[in-house]
Amino acid sequence: SRFGGGCPKLAVHAAFTQPGQILVEAVEMPDGAEFLCIARTLEGPQGAFSERPRRTALLIGCDIGFRDEIVYGGALPGTASGKSGQGVAVATPVGPACRLCERIGCLARAEPPVTRPLGLDEMVTGLSAFDFQ
C-alpha cells in the first residue's frame, strides 16, 4: 500500500457494483504468473436506518494450476466443470499497483510507474493518461 492501492483491473473493485456476488477471474501478472482470483463484498453492521451499512470487499487468490481443485475454478472456461468446457481461460493482464506496474498502454492506469521516466511528448498521444519510456 506504500505505492497506492491494488490494480484497478482486479475484480475486488468491481465487487462493489455487484454486492454479495462472487466474482471469479483469471489474472496474469507482468512476470507471466497467472492466478485464480475470487472477490466479493461482505456487509457490516448498520447502526441506524439512515446509515449505510459498512461494505468491505475481499480478494483472495491462488496459483491458476489449482483451478480444477477449487469449486470456484469451475466458473472459468477450460476447466473440467467450466461453463463452456473448452478452451483456456483468458487471463486479465493486471499488475501489483500502478506505481509498480510497467504495462504499456493500460487504459486503467491511475499513476505513472516509479521505475520508468515519463514520456513527455506533446506531439504523441498514447492510450494511457501516463505514457512512459
Score class of each variant (00 low, 15 high):
I104H: 14
P53R: 08
P53H: 09
A91K: 10
G74Q: 01
E28T: 03
L36D: 10
F16N: 02
F66E: 14
G87P: 04
G20V: 04
G65E: 11
E43L: 07
E43R: 13
P19E: 03
R40T: 01
T115P: 00
R103W: 03
E28C: 05
T115L: 15
V90Q: 08
A26N: 07
L100H: 08
V90S: 00
Q86S: 02
L36S: 08
V12I: 07
G82W: 10
A33P: 09
T56N: 12
A91Y: 04
A15T: 05
A15G: 06
A11L: 10
V88N: 03
P30Y: 09
I38N: 00
D68R: 15
E34L: 04
E111C: 01
G47D: 15
A110S: 14
S50G: 08
F49Q: 12
I38V: 11
A97Y: 00
P30M: 08
R52G: 14
L59P: 04
E25I: 00
A15D: 08
I60K: 13
I60E: 15
E51V: 07
G73P: 07
R67C: 15
K83D: 10
I38Q: 03
R54V: 15
R54M: 13
G87F: 06
A97K: 05
L36A: 10
P77V: 02
A89S: 13
G73M: 02
T92G: 09
R54I: 13
G61S: 15
R55G: 05
G82P: 05
V12L: 05
T41D: 06
G44P: 06
P77E: 13
I38A: 06
I22T: 04
A75Y: 11
A80K: 15
A39S: 15
I60P: 05
L107A: 15
Q18D: 04
V90E: 12
S84C: 02
G95D: 00
L23A: 03
